[in-house]
Design a protein around this nucleic acid. Structure first.
Lengths: 294, 294
DNA sequence: CCGCCGCTGTCAAGAATTTTCCAAAACGAT
DNA sequence: ATCGTTTTGGAAAATTCTTGACAGCGGCGG
């Protein structure tokens, strides 16, 4: 009776058992399946009422599935749901049934995006965009260990829109150079999420001292660099994984880009055309014809 | 029909309330948050024991959060979890008040994430993750003009998890080098979204010819490199802006990373420890002490 | 048409869980 | 060091949940 390692998803087992069930039991099972896996969460009473059957019927159902009783069933189901939620960490292959492995992760990311919206005041966002759209100001972008790619992305696309954009690799000499060239009114964009890097703080401080406008893109706990930043955009980054998700940061970056692009629309068009042209001409990289079977 | 929520997500509320909590309460809250949202599933007794506090403490905690008691709290949390699992991912407008400038953009990104979920078959995703988690195989990542940053990000974090990861800057000589070193069974990850780059196609072709497993991360219209890829992950990238949003690509990348990390969990821990150690020792960059008010 | 059989819901007892109450412990301040 | 306040966990009380027993209902075969 104590099923040893019935590894099959409960959902599947229930579906398989359907034919051998009685009317009310099937009704209960149908409800459970169509509201999967909500049934794991509530009590049997609530579930029975929702499915419009009696609780003993539910008990008999899960017993037919091989469980000792409702508690036993619920414990198993909870374990499954827990896996689903803590997500990709414990999935093994063959789990193709039911939910998509991306589902849990994606849901959290969306939560993060939501949270990010509430954390960034509209004015802050717009002010940052205005600064980036000001072609009088030069722009320096700096990323950290984890946010290197985001800074790179921002700088790359910002360069498509406007001139005077520098990306600062995380190297000391670049720093000094950049600080040397910094003019009053220039814009410095710093990415820094935990674990925070002292580089970011110091660069922010020095840049601010030289009269630069500092925009800090950080996480919900705020990098210490926030003390030196005029504009702070805090993003939500937690996911149930070994480290954080920076997707919401990218969303903010892209939204900023879209906003800047909107403000500079007319100027951008000409720029894009020129760029296209350049790309066309530079098609030297026609891929050195290594075709024929190497 | 989204029933409007009366409150912010519980997770957020709890985090916000943290400062006003007592030691034991904070301990409980920390446990709940770090195991989110598993706590919704079990009984207060189990939770209290796991957090190493007493059940009354937990009750007081949730009461401070504005719930009547544990049952009330659990009911609310269950509703949230249920949403998380079943509901399609949505942004809840309204909560952010008066059309946030990020709103429209974010909403479209969420749509993209949803669309991406339906476009990537679970098996394809899992197969790709399995390849990346196979430490016998070496990995080469290549990004394009727009996806440079994503490739960089994938490679950077993959290196944290495992050895033998190379990122290929978009330079011809690197290519040749890489192709030269390629062994049968190695894994090549190529990013390519429109406007597609011939580089990607050629590299994919050559890599495939040499017996590499090619994973292609592309957009909904499929890069021509798809012809040479064993695994294609197609992401939705449209947004109402001058160019596409690559946020959904980042989500896929991060989900892949999480999945790989899960498969290599044991090995990763040791690796992480060593990494921490190295970082600590390399703290040469203590930032030239320019503190005292310039 | 009748009786048997199995399904189903009501009910109550037993188990588990949540919550309240209280005393002890920890903390802070004088 | 001592007193008053706050915090904490143990244990009992109240509530809720689960499950087994039982009886009604309906279908099916005779």
């Amino acid at each position: 009776m104590p099923q040893l390692k019935d590894q099959k998803p409960i959902e599947e087992r229930m579906r398989a058992a359907m034919p051998g069930l009685t009317r009310a039991e099937r009704q209960a099972a149908a409800h459970i399946l169509s509201h999967f896996p909500m049934s794991a969460l509530g009590s049997i009473t609530v579930l029975a009422k929702a499915a419009d059957v009696s609780s003993p019927t539910v008990v008999r159902l899960v017993q037919k599935l091989g469980f000792r009783g409702y508690s036993d069933y619920q414990k198993a189901l909870r374990a499954e749901v827990s896996d689903l939620l803590t997500a990709p960490l414990t999935l093994d292959e063959g789990r193709t049934g039911a939910s998509h492995p991306l589902q849990g992760f994606a849901a959290q990311v969306v939560n993060n995006i939501n949270a990010t919206l509430t954390q960034i005041p509209a004015e802050e966002f717009l002010a940052a965009a205005a600064l980036l759209a000001d072609t009088q100001r030069r722009i320096t972008v700096m990323g950290g260990r984890l946010t290197h790619a985001h800074g790179d992305y921002l700088a790359t696309l910002l360069r498509v829109i406007r001139a005077d954009v520098t990306y600062l690799a995380d190297v000391l000499t670049d720093w000094q150079q950049a600080l040397l060239d910094l003019r009053e009114g220039d814009v410095v964009v710093i990415f820094d999420i935990r674990r925070y890097e002292s580089n970011a703080v110091h660069f922010a401080e020095l840049a601010a001292e030289q009269g630069a406008e500092v925009i800090l893109i950080t996480d919900r706990w705020l990098s210490p660099a926030a003390a030196h930043a005029q504009h702070v955009l805090a993003c939500a980054v937690e996911v149930p994984a070994a480290w954080d998700s920076t997707a919401s940061i990218l969303v903010v970056v892209e939204a900023l880009l879209a906003q800047v692009q909107g403000r500079l629309a007319d100027q951008v068009q000409a720029r894009l055309n020129r760029l296209e042209d350049l790309f066309a001409r530079t098609k030297v990289f026609r891929a050195p014809k290594m075709t024929s079977k190497n």
